[in-house]
């Protein structure tokens, strides 16, 4: 700061900080926890990371319901590991949110009180074991499309959590696809289960990328801040292009009569998801919203005594150690 400036100190400092922040973003460098950042950037990140964390945590439920009913020990062990990974993803992300000053207990409360959202996709039911395979293939596949660019997100802890998560998602997608290949080699009834699951999950999976670009008001700002690297429609298009040949190999039909290769654009044309349905599910009116949040609330409340007992035990041990040292 220049000595003897007539301007009051506060805005002068803020000016310099904003410029430094902008320059860091422009150079494609990372913003780190203790750096100065605009309040809007911080708030946007906390909201996005918290929603992402909540999605991982709620996302354990649809598949978790099949752990006890998995058809073999091999499938049970795989599903267990996958669901455990999703718990881990949630915790990496809560950890990243905390570097921004968010409080973890507060985030959990916001989730179970319905004040913060999670991905719409987890509000659909898992009706057969084929759903477990289709979730791995579609939902984790869509998550990969979303998350790979986030490894270069401008906020350091978020980007690093994403690197860790992306390494694990590949297993999730492959175990799902392999499960479906196994079922497709089975009986007609099994092939029908797979096709039925594909029919039910295809459109909700496309909705995972969020509303279309012309109706996604915060996207432009997030992209300017390089929190987000690609638009919703761009990511959706990538997912479709990636999935179509996989569906052909598997021998299932994606339930979209408008789906076809567009030679000129070098991409697939596809139909429009039911955006009214997405709005309803986001606003709490999906098939399983109430059940998912209630389950999370119950787990949290039923775990309260464990958290308290562990603290009491830690205090007792600390006191014992202190007494031992004094003696």
């Amino acid at each position: 700061m220049t000595a003897g400036q007539a301007k009051p100190a506060e805005p002068a400092v803020a000016d310099g900080l904003q410029e430094r922040f902008d320059a860091t973003i422009a150079r494609d460098q990372r913003i780190e926890p203790r750096d100065w950042m605009p309040e809007g950037y911080r708030a946007t990140l906390i909201r996005q990371i918290a929603q992402h964390a909540h999605s991982e945590i709620i996302g354990m439920q649809p598949e978790g319901e099949w752990i006890t009913r998995a058809p073999s020990l091999r499938r049970k062990a795989i599903l267990f590991a996958k669901v455990q990974d999703e718990a881990g993803h949630g915790l990496y992300l809560y950890s990243a949110a905390e570097t921004l000053g968010a409080d973890r207990a507060d985030l959990t409360e916001r989730l179970i009180e319905g004040r913060q959202k999670y991905s719409s996709i987890f509000n659909y039911p898992t009706l057969s074991f084929a759903d477990v395979g289709v979730i791995g293939w579609f939902v984790d596949g869509a998550a990969i499309c979303n998350q790979v660019p986030l490894c270069r997100s401008s906020y350091g802890p978020y980007a690093r959590a994403m690197v860790r998560i992306c390494k694990e998602e590949s297993f999730h997608q492959r175990q799902g696809y392999e499960l479906l290949m196994t079922m497709m080699r089975g009986t007609d009834a099994q092939r029908e289960m797979v096709q039925d699951a594909v029919n039910r999950w295809w459109w909700p999976s496309l909705m995972m990328f969020g509303p279309p670009d012309d109706n996604s008001p915060n996207s432009a700002r997030s992209m300017a801040w390089k929190i987000k690297r690609h638009s919703n429609d761009e990511l959706r298009r990538r997912f479709v292009d990636m999935t179509v040949p996989q569906a052909e190999k598997l021998g299932v039909t994606l339930p979209d009569p408008e789906l076809r290769w567009n030679e000129e654009r070098g991409h697939h044309d596809f139909g429009t998801p039911d955006w009214d349905e997405l709005t309803r599910v986001i606003q709490g009116d999906g098939p399983c919203n109430a059940r998912r949040v209630e389950r999370r609330r119950t787990a949290h409340e039923e775990g309260a005594w464990v958290r308290e007992a562990a603290l009491a035990h830690a205090a007792k041990q600390a006191a014992r150690t202190a007494r031992g040292a004094a003696a």
């Binding site: 990496y92 950890s95 905390e98 570097t99 973890r104 958290r307 603290l311």
Partner: peptide, 12 residues
């Protein structure tokens, strides 16, 4: 450094 977590004590 890889991240953070919450625990009741060092062992946990």
């Amino acid at each position: 450094h890889v991240g953070s977590l919450h625990a009741a004590d060092d062992r946990m």
